[in-house]
């Protein structure tokens, strides 16, 4: 399981609706919203590839300007996928 800390950077005019839609995404937990343009979140995904696709999906979401990654947890389960390069 790969755990990422994210900042969802939302467009001013769509932050409310975008947040409501994003909140339902699997593996995503939103943090306290103090600035509606910059929303902290945690994403859990089973693999690096799934994590990357989930972040790309968030960036493609209407109302999302871009996503900043603030943390990456290197869990032990990651070791098996370290072979990706050598495959």
């Amino acid at each position: 399981m790969l755990v990422s800390g994210l900042v969802l950077c939302l467009n001013d005019d769509a932050s409310g609706t975008a947040l409501e839609a994003i909140r339902c995404r699997p593996g995503l937990e939103l943090g306290p919203v103090e600035d509606p343009r910059r929303v902290p979140a945690v994403l859990e995904a089973p693999t690096e590839d799934a994590s990357r696709k989930a972040i790309e999906g968030l960036e493609a979401h209407e109302g999302v300007h871009h996503v900043e990654v603030a943390f990456i947890g290197f869990d032990r389960s990651q070791e098996s996928s370290d072979a990706a390069r050598s495959a």
Partner: peptide, 8 residues
């Protein structure tokens, strides 16, 4: 980390 980076 996310909260901190978000400026909160």
């Amino acid at each position: 980390a996310a909260v901190s980076a978000a400026g909160g």
